[in-house]
Design a binder for these strands. Structure first.
Lengths: 204, 204
DNA sequence: ACTGTTTTGTACCGATGAGTACAATCTAAT
DNA sequence: ATTAGATTGTACTCATCGGTACAAAACAGT
């Protein structure tokens, strides 16, 4: 005997919550912000998602599945040179960071910067830190196992190579958040790949 | 007829306020945080610094004069190759970002990331945005006027070159804030400078 | 139509946010 | 010693924070 029908779409509401946290962070987002953007009121939110921290964790997961995973999958493309795959990955990252009217950067990177401020609950902190490591692991492994990478000798510098790319991309996130356009950020990609010793930017 | 003596050092208190904002941001810092770290109580704070926003503006200025200006001055060193000057600048930046027990990254970069969240007063927002542009202008001008840069043809790519360096350094700020050590970040510098076409990393 | 169940809206809770009133305290000049 | 001026500590203000109680509203099955 089910009761009154839910008057909102849960996925849509979660999506709105994700963008709210993405824009304002965990600390800067109030329940009033959330309910306004989600189009629901507090009791509905608490009934569906738990509390602010639970909602944040679900929004974080939603970000990973709808954004991060898609971007990371560009590294698995077949029949494309390593350099092109890396470039596609970096372009895809920047595209996410600059999407919408106002670029928001990286959800995880921004929220991770709040962690040290001690205003974030423990579980959320650990989850953000855990998820932030995934790209590094994937990139490092790519440099270690990819045949082309081994030929170039990059497998011996896998960690620093991965880290340099991610440092650059985190910088892009900051830049995007302060208004730098996608085009300008993309321009730097070839410079980074050149520096890593990934061959010429014209041929590969 | 001056009254009771001030029982705290104003500069010292401002310094404590700077580190508090640096760690927790404008939004995440409460007056309780501030007064606790500054070692004074609220009326003293309001009498000396105005209000939270005024204190933030003064802390920001304090950051610029004690940190940013020092770092930028490394670019003005004489008798050193362009590559070495840029490297010194980047190392100095990373040193500031990773100082202390826990690296805090870049005060300006972090606070700028809060701006878009709409929880920052207008004046503070504009000041943070204004100050964030200074390094780009300085670097761009360096690439345009430095003789060595002109020989290398970098004057024709001054803007993108400056932006690439700053994007990388903003990434270092994020990395530092999430615990990456100074050593690891410094390792990437030569890769970036190589990519920019600043000659060999061994000779210059 | 009635009943049990779920969602919704309103109105609240205690805690904490920024900011201030005011009296007690201290210091320097007279 | 007294007085005037400035700083200090305590105790407030009002608004907003995250979270909830509760009754009205809307449904499904009988």
């Amino acid at each position: 005997m089910s009761g009154r029908k839910r008057a909102f779409d849960e996925v849509q509401a979660l999506n709105a919550a994700m963008y709210t946290f993405w824009k304002k962070g965990f600390v800067g987002t109030s329940l009033a912000d959330l309910t306004a953007n989600m189009g629901i009121n507090k009791p509905s939110m608490y009934a569906s998602f738990g509390n602010k921290e639970d909602l944040f964790l679900k929004a974080t997961q939603h970000y990973v599945t709808t954004k991060v995973d898609r971007v990371l999958s560009t590294l698995d493309q077949q029949g494309i040179s390593l350099r092109r795959r890396l470039k596609a990955y970096m372009v895809a990252t920047i595209t996410v960071q600059t999407e919408g009217e106002q670029g928001l950067g990286c959800f995880l990177s921004f929220c991770e910067s709040e962690v040290i401020g001690e205003n974030i609950p423990e579980a959320a902190k650990q989850e953000v830190e855990r998820l932030s490591q995934l790209p590094h692991q994937k990139l490092k492994q790519l440099f270690e196992t990819d045949p082309e990478s081994i030929v170039l000798g990059l497998d011996k510098r896998s960690s620093i190579s991965a880290q340099t790319i991610l440092t650059f991309l985190k910088g892009c996130a900051s830049m995007a958040r302060s208004g730098t356009s996608s085009d300008k950020l993309v321009e730097s990609i070839d410079i980074i790949l050149d520096g890593l010793g990934l061959g010429s930017r014209v041929s590969n």
